[in-house]
C-alpha cells in the first residue's frame, strides 16, 4: 500500500483521530491526535491490510511551541511503511503509550521522556533511560540550559561557544 491508501484506511476507521496526510517530505506522514494514538497503532498492527508488525523507531522533535512524537512503522509481510506524528503542547506534554501494541516501544518512550520530557500515560516503567535519575531538565529541548554543576563536579567552561 502507498501512503495515500494507508491514510484512507486510517481516516475511514478513525475520522476524528486521524488528521491530514503530509506529502511534502520524503517520508509522507500522518498526523494523529494524542488521545487516539494507542487505538490507531493497535489498528495498524492488527488490521490485515496494514499489518504493521514492527515499530522501527519512536522519537521526538522539539517544534518550539509543541513537541512532536514520531512513530516509524514497518510491515515485514506487506513491505510498506508509514510515519505517524503526534503533536503535544509543551505546557502539557502528555500522550498515550504504545507499549501495549509493540513491546519495543518501552525503551523508546523512556528515551523520549528522558530527553524531551514527553509523558506517556499507561507506560509500565517511565523512568529516565540514559541520564542519571537525579538529572534536572530534558536536554533536547530548545530552552534547555546546560548544568553548571552536577554531583559536586564543576561543569562550567572557561570559554564561550
Amino acid at each position: 500500500m502507498n501512503a495515500e491508501a494507508i491514510h484512507q484506511t486510517l481516516k475511514k476507521r478513525f475520522p476524528d483521530g486521524v488528521g491530514e496526510l503530509h506529502t511534502e517530505t520524503i517520508d509522507p506522514w500522518i498526523e494523529v491526535q494524542p488521545e487516539h494514538i494507542a487505538d490507531v497503532c493497535r489498528f495498524c498492527k492488527e488490521d490485515e491490510a496494514l499489518g504493521f508488525d514492527f515499530l522501527s523507531n519512536l522519537t521526538g522533535v522539539d517544534a518550539h511551541n509543541d513537541l512532536l512524537v514520531v512513530y516509524h512503522l514497518y510491515a515485514y509481510g506487506k513491505r510498506h511503511s508509514a510515519v505517524l506524528k503526534v503533536r503535544v503542547p509543551k505546557g502539557k506534554p502528555v500522550t498515550k503509550t504504545v507499549t501495549t501494541v509493540w513491546r519495543t516501544a518501552n525503551w523508546f518512550e523512556r528515551e523520549c521522556y528522558d530527553l524531551l520530557g514527553v509523558r506517556f500515560e499507561g507506560h509500565p516503567d517511565l523512568r529516565r533511560l540514559l541520564l542519571p535519575d537525579d538529572w534536572e531538565g530534558h536536554p533536547l529541548r530548545k530552552e534547555y540550559m546546560f548544568p553548571t554543576e552536577y554531583g559536586g563536579i564543576d561543569n562550567t567552561r572557561d570559554y564561550g561557544f
Binding site: L131, P139, Y144, P147, I153, F161
Partner: peptide, 13 residues
C-alpha cells in the same frame, strides 16, 4: 567537550 553530559577531563575527579 560541548556536550551537556560530558566531564571535561578525568583530572577533575
Amino acid at each position: 567537550d560541548l556536550g551537556y553530559s560530558v566531564l571535561r577531563g578525568v583530572d577533575k575527579v
